[in-house]
Design a protein around this nucleic acid. Sequence first.
DNA 1: CTAAGGACCTGTCGGC
DNA 2: TGCCGACAGGTCCTTA
Length: 270
Amino acid sequence: MPELPEVETTRRGIAPHVQDHNIEAVRVRQPRLRWPVPPDLADLLVDRRVQSVARRGKYLLIGFEHGTVLVHLGMSGSLRLVPEALPPARHDHLDLVLDSGLALRLTDPRRFGAVLWQPLGAVHELLASLGPEPLSDTFDAACLQRACKGRRSSIKQVIMDSKVVVGVGNIYANEALFAAGIHPKRAAGRISPQRLARLVDEIKGVLARAIEQGGTTLRDFVGGDGKPGYFSQELAVYGRAGDACVRCRETLREIRLGQRSTVFCPKCQT
DNA sequence: CTAAGGACCTGTCGGC
DNA sequence: TGCCGACAGGTCCTTA
């Protein structure tokens, strides 16, 4: 998926076209996403006005007066604004038709994404136990130190755990660990507080820079306005196994951690 | 509680 | 050219 920067880029792209607009129709072509699309979604949304477009972790939150639509893009999802009458392609599963003649269209080949409804006053279970936002002040050195204390699993798996901090996916976990000089496999509980503090800074830095550049384009990702991101040009390790380390020219190595591809510099990361 | 592995689904790529 | 396995941005759920 889209990692957090991609989701934020999407949010910024779609917000001006969606906020303060009325939903005229909801067209669900494929309700079988990761969880079924609520069958009554049209009843809930038609003739209602979008009040806000926010984000929590990798969830997009489309706010109405009586509740919130949660959209997760899974591994391969994207949202775009299209002319309402544009014929849907194979994996275009859902449209929110707006009063402007545009439709917010969800495309998701792998269908790991989700569209859910959260009534006003309720907190959806999926959001209930999420950790802090990585770019907020709540996510600081003390916070990561607490999360790592006593944990034997690798630091990479800990920072990718959404209960610890949200929005750090595989690409940015690799990049942040490289930037911080920490070996991805190192046991989280055996890293000094100073190095964890550094890691917090690097996570924030990598994510902030990626958002500035509109995310990382891999394969089919496009932001809400259809423009690709450019952060892929800045990736130091992800997708570069076998290449030379940008810092010391050592050959970058690839291993598997939790079934995810993990690339690091054996010399710079310890 | 933690940790590890499977599950969901489709598309693409490399190797034979 | 065609087929087959491995792998891809996520993360919940089950099992140990």
